[in-house]
């Protein structure tokens, strides 16, 4: 292990001990509103997934020409077109899916998130350039948010950097992880593979435990699996993490014709967030090397055990959920 990594790792311990609190934010609080057209311009609104804050407390703002009082929505001759927004999105309600079911034609879905709290409701027909831009902005931001709030994913990437070190091998390892999670994200989003969320989350936690063990092995001078085949290990675990990313999209019930684009933007957002984290970690490694900041002796082992312990804590917690003992 590079000495300069040690002091960085010491701070990781501090953050990691608090990460179990932060990781709760990873499970987004959703709401899903269905608007079913009963006559031209008139809809019946119903929360199919009621947000945790309660349906009555959602500050839903319809286009100005519409009259809205649950369960009634009347937009007159003009119909339901224009800006729709939720004024009080936050940590207790991070996203809402609006599904519009017209009397004729296919149902349409729109996603409102804290990053993109306003969507434009379109009339029937092909999506316009504006709607593609809105879709891109929504899912790009959602992807960035998802990775930044995913302490488990970030800790796994951090562990990989620690084992592999800085250099060409790191590029290969991170690329393999990216390919792995992108492939499984796409497969899961298109319904080609399906893994129940709770066992999957437990497996993700277990992957970090594995990385923690591998770090200890490296510290002892043993060549673990990750040290010998970093790309293969990163790619394989990337497949697991990718299905986890897909679970964030699954709850939103995106319209099938928009799914490929939404998926591409979401994945791009995840990559942007991941790249920012890798660059920040590498910058800190450089800074510690420059300052000669080193933890000596047993101090070098503690962070590895801390990462492993926190991941084990997550694993046990998630396993209890699988067994429904929580």
């Amino acid at each position: 292990m590079r000495p300069s990594l040690r002091i960085l790792a010491a701070w990781t311990i501090v953050s990691a001990f608090f990460a179990p609190i932060a990781v709760h934010a990873h499970e987004s609080s959703l709401g899903a509103l269905e608007l079913r057209e009963v006559r031209h311009g008139a809809y019946v609104a119903r929360w199919t997934i009621e947000p945790t804050i309660g349906a009555a407390r959602v500050d839903l703002r319809m286009p100005p020409h519409c009259f809205f009082r649950l369960p009634e929505l009347d937009c007159g001759e003009k119909g339901l077109v224009g800006a729709l927004t939720i004024g009080n999105l936050g940590s207790r309600m991070s996203a809402a899916l609006i599904k519009i079911i017209p009397m004729e034609g296919e149902a349409r879905s729109y996603t409102i998130t804290t990053a993109n709290p306003t969507v434009s409701i379109l009339g029937p027909g092909a999506p316009s350039l504006q709607s593609w831009i809105e879709l891109g902005a929504t899912y790009l931001n959602y992807g960035v948010d998802h990775i930044l709030l995913g302490a488990d994913h970030l800790l796994f990437v951090f562990g990989l950097i620690w084992i592999v070190g800085v250099g060409r091998r790191l590029i290969g390892t991170i690329t393999a992880f990216t390919i792995g999670h992108s492939a499984s994200l796409a497969a899961a989003a298109f319904g080609l593979v399906g893994v129940p969320e709770r066992p999957l989350n437990a497996c993700i936690a277990l992957s970090i435990v594995f990385v923690g063990v591998e770090i200890v092995k490296k510290r002892r001078g043993e060549a673990g699996l990750t040290a010998r085949y970093p790309s293969a290990v990163a790619g394989a675990f990337g497949l697991v993490h990718g299905v986890g990313f897909a679970s964030a999209l699954a709850g939103l019930g995106i319209e099938s014709r928009l799914l490929p684009a939404a998926l591409a933007f979401f994945n791009l957002g995840v990559e942007i967030g991941q790249l920012a984290f890798v660059l920040l970690t590498l910058s800190l490694l450089w800074a510690h090397r420059r300052l000669g900041a080193v933890l000596t002796g047993w101090g070098g082992l503690v962070p590895a055990y801390a990462i492993g312990s926190v991941a084990m804590f997550w694993f046990i917690g998630r396993l209890l959920r699988v067994l429904e003992l929580d």
Binding site: W11, S15, L280, S283, L284, W286, A287, H288, L291, A293
Partner: peptide, 16 residues
């Protein structure tokens, strides 16, 4: 954490 990152990066850049 923000303070730690900022101090580490600027101090290292100054040393360099």
């Amino acid at each position: 954490i923000a303070g730690y990152v900022a101090i580490a990066l600027v101090a290292a850049a100054t040393v360099a």
